[in-house]
Design a protein around this nucleic acid. Sequence first.
DNA 1: CAAGCGCTATCTATCGATAGATAGACGGAG
DNA 2: CTCCGTCTATCTATCGATAGATAGCGCTTG
Lengths: 186, 186
Amino acid sequence: MTADTKQMIMDAARAMVQARGYNGLSFRELAKEVGVKSASVHYHFSTKGDLGAALARRYADEAIEIFDGFLEASQDVRACMRMYTDVFRSALSNNNRMCLCGIMAAEHDDLPAEVRAEVDRFTDVNIRWLVKLLSRGKKAATAAIEQRALAIFAAVGGAQLVARGRGDIAVYDEAIEAYRAAGLLP
Amino acid sequence: MTADTKQMIMDAARAMVQARGYNGLSFRELAKEVGVKSASVHYHFSTKGDLGAALARRYADEAIEIFDGFLEASQDVRACMRMYTDVFRSALSNNNRMCLCGIMAAEHDDLPAEVRAEVDRFTDVNIRWLVKLLSRGKKAATAAIEQRALAIFAAVGGAQLVARGRGDIAVYDEAIEAYRAAGLLP
DNA sequence: CAAGCGCTATCTATCGATAGATAGACGGAG
DNA sequence: CTCCGTCTATCTATCGATAGATAGCGCTTG
């Protein structure tokens, strides 16, 4: 039983942050959830900032892998985009949670610097990937594509935020559909 | 000196929440900002939930007034929409702040019930207004207009969130412009 | 005088963080 | 094989800071 405590801590912490934000994460509650003492959490992550940064770093790294898998899985821009929006959808369908970095972005100015840096990197990762995807379709000007990528990322994040507030995943689906209908999404 | 303390408290509290979120608001810091003691804040708002709900309520009420003023000021749908997006822009230009209810929406599940109710009402106010505006243009199906209104609200909120994270108001402008170019915004 | 309002002083709960102890695994030395 | 030292991982207990909240005093003003 390699129920690696460190992994369990990170998993539980991610879920808690996705549900209640970085400020809503406490070592004591986290430890209780995992079944250890808060001192043990400090053993693995010396400060709360360390933990938050580790969470965001792993999250961004996983995003790169997953997103790049989409690009390899299909040459169809529309299909890839659908897989992309489905990733954000799955956070909602998993107990009405938000994207880890989406919710942390709201707390942006309150975050320890090392956490903020990783959250910003997640944004970069998304935008770079979207640029790569959009570049497949047409060879528009780079600036135009970057603008479009940014708009898509913002719109998807906003849809997630509003849908979670409503507690209704259908709200997300409707927003995405409206984006597609308007031509914002390919 | 009717520098009404209660008003000063609400003004300072709103600014602090817009910068750091509801969880980032503390009575002590708020009191210091206003120049009173935290006990005095409790005199006007018996609990933090009371204060948060009052903030969100006033915010939503002001939004109704401001937005309806747009509808009266111009018959042009595009002009009204620009005024609408400019309201969200002004939060950013005011010290890189977020919409009060936008940032609270991220903390949605952590909010006291009375605060959450007002935040939800703000969303309603926005969507109802957008529906009213969009209905001017064309007589599309109600469901389609509501979907569109929701998508616009989400997209604008997302643009604000991302732009604040980047600390660059130009990001907001670019996203809005992309929405317009795509035809999401009229 | 009475009410309204802000104060001092204090409470309880919880936060992140740290100190120090301990149980057990592992490896090398005699 | 066994003893010794070290390392890992967790524990208990506690720290100072800060959170929101409260009781009661005192000033000011109508």
